[in-house]
């Protein structure tokens, strides 16, 4: 069961990656990367159960946090350049 979940997560990662590569434009990429980040959180959680070491969930918390901060940073710092250019 867990193996199937892991496979699904990897497939989802690949699909999100395709969207991140295709774009078009900044927002589609951020969206795809944000989704990829959530999938890595799940990946860490599920791999803990798959290989019998669920102690490492701390890393999942950290991934969720940095993923959010990265999205915020992209939004604010890209905003800035546009308002400066205008």
């Amino acid at each position: 069961m867990i193996v199937a979940v892991m496979a699904a997560i990897l497939v989802t990662m690949l699909l999100a990656l395709a969207r991140a590569f295709l774009g078009p434009g900044r927002y589609n990429r951020i969206l795809a990367i944000n989704m990829f980040g959530t999938k890595t959180v799940l990946f860490v959680a599920v791999s803990g159960y798959l290989f019998g070491r669920p102690e490492f969930l701390d890393i999942g918390i950290l991934y969720a946090l940095v993923n959010f901060v990265a999205v915020i940073a992209v939004l604010r710092l890209t905003h800035e350049t546009e308002s400066d250019a205008a």
């Binding site: 980040g37 890393i59 950290l62 991934y63 946090l65 940095v66 901060v69 990265a70 940073a73 710092l77």
Partner: peptide, 10 residues
Amino acid sequence: AAVGVGISTV
């Protein structure tokens, strides 16, 4: 994760 994704991206 902390450095590569968080701080260095920012």
